[in-house]
Every structure is written in structure tokens, then in C-alpha cells.
Amino acid sequence: MITVTELHKQFRRAAPKEGPFKGLRSLFSRDYQVKEAVCGISFQIEPGEFVGYIGPNGAGKSTTIKMLSGILHPTSGEVRIFDRSPHQERRLVTKRLGVLFGQRTQLWWDLPTRDSYDILAAMYGMDAAKKRTRLGQLRELLALDEFLDTPVRQLSLGQRMRADIAAALLHDPDILFLDEPTIGLDVIAKRNIRQFLKDINLNLGKTIMLTTHDMDDIEQLCSRVIVINHGRLGFDGTIDDLRRRIGLPTIIRVTYNKAESMEHEVPAPLRCHSRAGRTLTVECNREQLSAMEALRLLEQFGELEDVHMEEPNFEDIIHRVY
């Protein structure tokens, strides 16, 4: 459905000069610094996938999304969506894309929200009946009614994001590119939007690619993660693959009934993390040892009073990949 091959994007800017008259010299200079924003990225996305596209600030996420949606032309490499190029056949491809930039609204700032939908419907060539049914569905799903007649500039961030998502979905696109759809939202708004995205992916089969800095978005939504850093592909696979690849240990904390039980070495392959009173904390690599086996190993030194297990935090995993 989406095929990206060896995608490159370079931005050129005049090279800054050092020394006397640097301002003047840079005016006449023809030296350029080339910044590789995206550097040789290839991937394929199949229908119905929910892909998280993550990476630190400036990694090239937005640049990629903009190339996929036909806004930016790649320096080299190719994008094919429905086997068409979003650059050569921009109008045909954009008709079937829904794109959201969380940082910037796509709606008509000074007009009532409802008007934006009227204009968009006309742009995508929807007839009145189709628009009415579509908008009817979205109004219900995203609770748009409370602000349909309010000018966009007066909406709260949460309302605006809902309005923008509805705008991206109005023409019933098969593919959604969402650039930070939960940025700046409160916990409840985030949860609602996640639930909504999950629904349209599972029930309507929409293919979604989303960038975010919120790892909960990724963990709860995405069946697949693509990590990009400094414009290069760092990882492409499922979340479990990612966990396994990084191999962050599960933390197991056990409390023994008797203090004597503490007087032993921690058996391999478990590793001792810390000891305090009757509580022993060990690290366990789940690739090597299941949790039950780990507990059985620990039990042989005495009766357990309490067990506590902590899965590695997803954010820590991501830190490792960056």
C-alpha cells in the first residue's frame, strides 16, 4: 500500500563564515552546508497496519510524513502510495489520504468549525448526502456538536484536535498520517483520541501511521514501530521485537519470611540488583528465564512472603534505541 524506497531529503543552507566581515562574505559565498534530514529510508506498509513512527526531535519524522503526503519532494528515492507517486500525481493521491499535523490546524481559523467541513467536502468532491452522513458519524464519535458553530480560533486545544481529526477523516481516506495527534492534550483527551484511533483501525480497517513523543500512544496503539534517528532507520518491527532486541531486564523483588534466607548468592542467570533487610531485588532476562522459573530458583532459599515484578518501562527501551 505504501512503499518507500531509499528515500533521501537534503536541505541546503548557506554555510556560515568565520572571521572578519563574516556577514558580508556569507552574502557572496556559494558554499552550502547540506543537512541530511532523511537518509536512505526504506519500508513498506500494508493495509490495516498501525505504525508508530518515532524518534527524537529533529530525527526527520515530520520530513518523512511531509514527503509521504506530497508536500515535500524527496532529493532522491521514491514514495509509492496505491502504486502512485504523491509528487507526480499529487491530487490523485491526496484525495485518499487524511493528514493531521498536531502542531498546526488545517481548518479555517476565522470561520465556524462547521464551515471548514463544508469547504473540505467540496474540495474532495463529496456530494451533500455523503457529507451529511459522514459528518453525522464523526459528530457522534468525536463529540463535535458542542463546538460546531464556534470559530476555530476559539476552540480549546482538545476540541481543536478533535475537529482536526474529523477534518482529516471527513473524506473517508484509506490512509491516515498523524503527526503528533496527542501533543499537549490532557490525560482524558489523550485517552479518548487513542480509543477513537484504535476503533477506526480495528473496525474500519484504516491504515494509520503516527508520529509521537508519547510512548503510551505507541504502546497502546501500534502493532509496529519504526524508529528513526538522524534521518536513518534505527529499527522496524513489533513492540515485542523492540523489547527483546534491547533486552532490558525484568525487575523481580522478593521478600523472604526469614532473614536467614538472604544469606546466599543469587543463582545465575539472575543478577543481584540490591538487598535491603529481608528484601532481595534481582534482574531477570526473560529471554533466558521465564518468570516462574526465576521464582522457583529464588524459592529454594526460603519461603516467600511477597513478590513484586516490574516490566521494563517502554520509555527506557526507547532511550536505548535513540
Binding site: 506530497g70 508536500i71 491526496t94 493528514v99 488545517q106 473540505l120 474540495m123 468532491g125
Partner: peptide, 8 residues
């Protein structure tokens, strides 16, 4: 950007 996104 927002003008380029539309099929117009």
C-alpha cells in the same frame, strides 16, 4: 503545507 495537502 496546508494548501499542498488538498486535491486542488
Amino acid at each position: 503545507d496546508s494548501l499542498l495537502l488538498r486535491p486542488v
